[in-house]
């Protein structure tokens, strides 16, 4: 059985990626953060997530479902909020952070979700397939396309 401290540890380890994933879905970081908090508060009330076979995939799926429910209730679909900070840039590379955010915003949502889940969520293609309800081959295809586009744009505009 997972104690409260164990759930808090999961929040510390995955909270940032979960909020980033949520932000890429609904466009607004505050709404995404609310959804993540809702998911973890429910977990704390239950006291465990032992029922989840894959805890990490379960967390991302829960956040996705929470946001889809919020969208149904509030009918609020916002454009991607590129003004807020999404990343802590390495070596204070704030220009790089803005650039990455802009390029991510140019990706179609399906590809952006896959990239975020794999790069920053550290999920495997199979886990992503379970979260999004698509096949692992589709995930791999979307990822390859999205990564190629990111590299093309970023390498052409920056010397990396």
């Amino acid at each position: 059985m997972h104690s409260t401290s164990e759930i808090e540890r999961l929040y510390q380890e995955n909270g940032a990626a979960l909020v980033l994933f949520g932000t890429s879905m609904v466009g607004n970081r505050s709404i995404a953060q609310d959804a993540v908090h809702q998911v973890f508060l429910r977990l704390l009330q239950r006291g465990d997530i032992d029922h989840a076979v894959d805890q990490k995939a379960y967390l991302f799926t829960s956040v996705k479902n929470q946001l889809l429910n919020d969208l149904k209730v509030h009918q609020r679909i916002a454009p991607l909020d590129l003004e807020s900070t999404w990343f802590e840039p390495p070596e204070r590379d704030y220009a790089g952070e803005r650039h990455l955010k802009r390029v991510l915003g140019e990706l179609v949502p399906d590809q952006r979700e896959v990239v975020i889940l794999h790069i920053w969520g550290e999920l495997t293609f199979l886990q992503i397939a379970n979260v999004l309800g698509i096949s692992a081959n589709t995930v791999a295809s979307r990822y390859r396309y999205a990564l190629g586009k990111l590299r093309e744009v970023m390498c052409s505009e920056e010397k990396i």
Binding site: T85, E88, C155
Partner: peptide
Amino acid sequence: MPLDDSEFESYLRRFRPISPEKLVVK
């Protein structure tokens, strides 16, 4: 010389997502 997939992934991972606000449970 363009980066290969793993190098580019490593570059992207250097950007860490902003940590969310602390989960406050009353």
